[in-house]
């Protein structure tokens, strides 16, 4: 079971990392647009703490000289020609919409401003 446990002797960010606060969890939930119940907030605070302390050990071996791997395949320059291909029929595009109006997707009032 050692694979996920934070080997205490070695220095890892988990060692220094303070436990997640409930406010941090609430902020994460807001960033992720997840409305959570009070009990969910408590549950995730505990569980995220456990998991984060365990996974933090990756920093033990991730030294500066190691290149990150973002892709398992080493492809570059994959492009599409600038040629129109048929998309969705208007009706098909809107078919699954919870609400539509004037050929557009109808959504509740947007409070925030555009980025």
């Amino acid at each position: 079971m050692s694979a996920l446990q934070d080997s205490g002797s070695e220095v890892s960010i988990a060692a220094q990392q303070p436990a997640l606060t409930r406010d941090e969890v609430a902020h994460l939930a807001h960033l992720a647009r997840l409305q959570l119940t009070e009990s969910e907030l408590d549950l995730y605070r505990e569980q995220l703490d456990v998991v984060l302390h365990s996974v933090a050990r990756v920093s033990e071996i991730a030294t500066a000289d190691v290149e990150p791997t973002t892709h398992a395949v080493q492809l570059v320059n994959v492009y599409r020609e600038d040629v129109v291909v048929p998309g969705l029929e208007h009706a098909a595009a809107l078919a699954a919409a919870p609400a539509t109006d004037e050929g557009r997707f109808r959504v509740p009032q947007i409070l925030g401003e555009e980025e």
């Binding site: 994959v78 492009y79 599409r80 600038d82 208007h90 595009a93 050929g103």
Partner: peptide
């Protein structure tokens, strides 16, 4: 591959990719 055109009727230049339908994937315009 949807047309990049101004002034078309709403939601007529759309496809699974630009509507972000589940499973759709992007391809870069050369």
């Amino acid at each position: 591959g949807c047309p990049n055109a101004f002034g078309a009727a709403p939601n007529t230049n759309v496809c699974p990719v630009c509507l972000a339908l589940p499973g759709a994937m992007p391809t870069v315009n050369a």
